[in-house]
Design a protein around this nucleic acid. Sequence first.
DNA 1: CACGATAGTTCAGTGAATGAACTACAGTGG
DNA 2: CCACTGTAGTTCATTCACTGAACTATCGTG
Lengths: 167, 167
Amino acid sequence: MALPSTYADRNCSLARALEIVGERWTLLIVRDAFFGVSRFGDFATQLGIPRAVLTNRLKFLVQEDVLAHVGGEYRLTAKGLRLWPVLRAMMAWGDAHYSPGGAKRTFRHEADGGTLDPQNRCSACGGVVPIAETSVEPGPGYTAPDTDPDPVSAVLTQPRRLLEPLT
Amino acid sequence: MALPSTYADRNCSLARALEIVGERWTLLIVRDAFFGVSRFGDFATQLGIPRAVLTNRLKFLVQEDVLAHVGGEYRLTAKGLRLWPVLRAMMAWGDAHYSPGGAKRTFRHEADGGTLDPQNRCSACGGVVPIAETSVEPGPGYTAPDTDPDPVSAVLTQPRRLLEPLT
DNA sequence: CACGATAGTTCAGTGAATGAACTACAGTGG
DNA sequence: CCACTGTAGTTCATTCACTGAACTATCGTG
């Protein structure tokens, strides 16, 4: 995005954060990484993003230490994992205002099956659930696609644990 | 931004949310609205955004019911106010990773002076503080600009209550 | 060494952002 | 009545980034 850093924005961490994750496609790439996507081709087919742009974004995210590129796979770093609250907050807002049937995805505490609120607090045990212990599944607002999804999307709509690499 | 809504993304509220607030400049405009900016010219000078782009963004945000345009002023709607957790989450991430001296801004519960964590929980009373009761001030990571700020920026670096219109 | 799979690069065409200048209009003072 | 100022935009040529399709590179396998 390369927002100009004016003196006003030099003192705003929101502007700084947006320079990293505010570019088009970037947060969707990060979301897919949370869902277990790790390969160039999988990002490309899942998002329908031009490969040239994907190359740029991945390069930048690696440079900024949001993703790590190891063994041909892109994985979230500790810094990238800390974007989880941002994604959850945005999803919650989108669910609340653009998904009349309820949340498009349900997040669950694997240990006890409780559902997670936007702050990742478990309805069963009451604790804040770490990413490694949460799983995703289609929520009440989910609507099945009319066309057959690509294999990557098909896997991603199955209930699965976060961060688990695609088979 | 007009992200293409593929079958995959039709079922993701993150993608939907990004179509609204994922465009360049948009979240900074919303942030300024939380800080009390409400006039076209103030947004323009504060953000350094091209006026043509500002016109587009404001028009779109009004159309999407994030802002309301009444009496020549742009104000956050209920839907817009619900973006507060998104902004807070992003600011927290930016503070954590790009502001070694600490948060650039401190948010405070006006009633008891307690500071707010990223979930807006008050350190003093322990409750989640509504927007109308919180105030902003420069935080420990704030650094004074080297050049004289414009009048709008100057006002915004004073401790002030959120949503309070600029004088 | 041929073959397919994966990970990119290249490039022409298009659309959006930029920045500076310009218009529209309302209110104020002389 | 008219200049003057402030606010809110619009216009436009330039630059830049995204798009989509095709192409190249590299690796592992048989």
